[in-house]
Design a protein around this nucleic acid. Sequence first.
DNA 1: CGCGGCTTTGATGTTCATCAAGTAAAGTGG
DNA 2: CCACTTTACTTGATGAACATCAAAGCCGCG
Lengths: 231, 231
Amino acid sequence: MDNNKGNQTGQECIEHKGLLEKLTDEQFNRILQNHNTFLFEKGEIICSEGNEIINFLFLQKGLIKLLKTGKNNKEHIINVAKPDDFIGLLNFFSRSEYLYSVTAIEDSVVCGIDFRLMKQLLEENSGFAMDIIEKISLAANDAVNARLKINSRQLRGRIAYIILFFAEHIYGKDHFELPISRKEIAQLIDMSTENVIRILSEFRKDKIISIDGKKITILDHDRLKRVYELG
Amino acid sequence: MDNNKGNQTGQECIEHKGLLEKLTDEQFNRILQNHNTFLFEKGEIICSEGNEIINFLFLQKGLIKLLKTGKNNKEHIINVAKPDDFIGLLNFFSRSEYLYSVTAIEDSVVCGIDFRLMKQLLEENSGFAMDIIEKISLAANDAVNARLKINSRQLRGRIAYIILFFAEHIYGKDHFELPISRKEIAQLIDMSTENVIRILSEFRKDKIISIDGKKITILDHDRLKRVYELG
DNA sequence: CGCGGCTTTGATGTTCATCAAGTAAAGTGG
DNA sequence: CCACTTTACTTGATGAACATCAAAGCCGCG
């Protein structure tokens, strides 16, 4: 972890047990006694590609994005994750350093558990280990599937995808405020910023959505779905 | 598993312990007594998207491709895997049915271990579980990274990627026989068959590679690498 | 031997990134 | 708090990259 924001009470880890639900009370208590809670404001970097992994990180509240720097130092957003989603956990077990950067896109609360303790718990509690295996598998599938969905569509389909992603997966409603800029949308679904804007405007003219700055309202959910399906 | 090819002696699982290296001798013996070995000829389907997962599959010999059917029933190749690579194992722990299809692209020997036995062993042996977690993580990363590499490049870079993939990762030499058709290359790196051919010809004219049907020889490895890097 | 699938090359049109130029919004420092 | 700078947003025009269509040769297989 790069910065060292104010520690919290620890209560947050209880509220959102999430990934830790298979632990015994005793094991869970050990975590409560050996963890740190960090606050990140919108825009702050949570961890950087290449840094050493010390903590097993775990999003309590907020919204984050996973980045990877590609060719020509171009940033690609791998995923946007909400609490209980796997953060960058895909790589926490595989290497000693982060393979992705993680940035807060909304004010976020992150719980950090010492990596060695985490390993120890995995070895003690096989049910916990199985649960984590299952969750990693699902997260891996989601990542691969998302890429497949995005890359097999042309621009209109991609924009439909990203709007539906935020509406259905992140916010659970048809009216929401985009937590990321047009440029970040472009990095997320592999297209140019200009075309993100152009197609959003098109959808607005076609009365599929309404736009007010970052506020998006889906006016015709079915039609948006159809645009997504058709590509 | 769809078909039920002739069972083998079981010796194959010993030769290539691979994913199972963390098991005790006793545990490994249980697998030897509870597994089936299947032979698949080039082109045969090993398992199909949507089928129920009964066996934990595990490639002993040969070469396979992972497929997923996308929009318009267009097939996308997710990955090509050789022995000790994770086959479709990414999803074996997550759902009760296969999320990908797997097809043999060379004659292959597949070892099938009863899924319940596998789960049991994971719960008994936490070192084994940790090892599997680590391998799933790495496989997931590889899958995501591969997609990122492919999709952030234009066609020349993609073709360079796939040639280097076979030369370095699969065969370990600069002269090899392509195990897949031009069309399958297209499915693997998201481009049209015609352009696969066109760019292969271009590389031939530029004396970067020589082509004789499916036989490829890399003549200028450095230059090919540069084409890959530049995109 | 003939049919279908794979391969190859050329021609055409579409999709998309890029460039340019301008407006609006949001930080920044005096 | 205002002038200044930067960053985000927007639209139009242009050209490049690429898919698609078409047509023909090739090969394996029944």
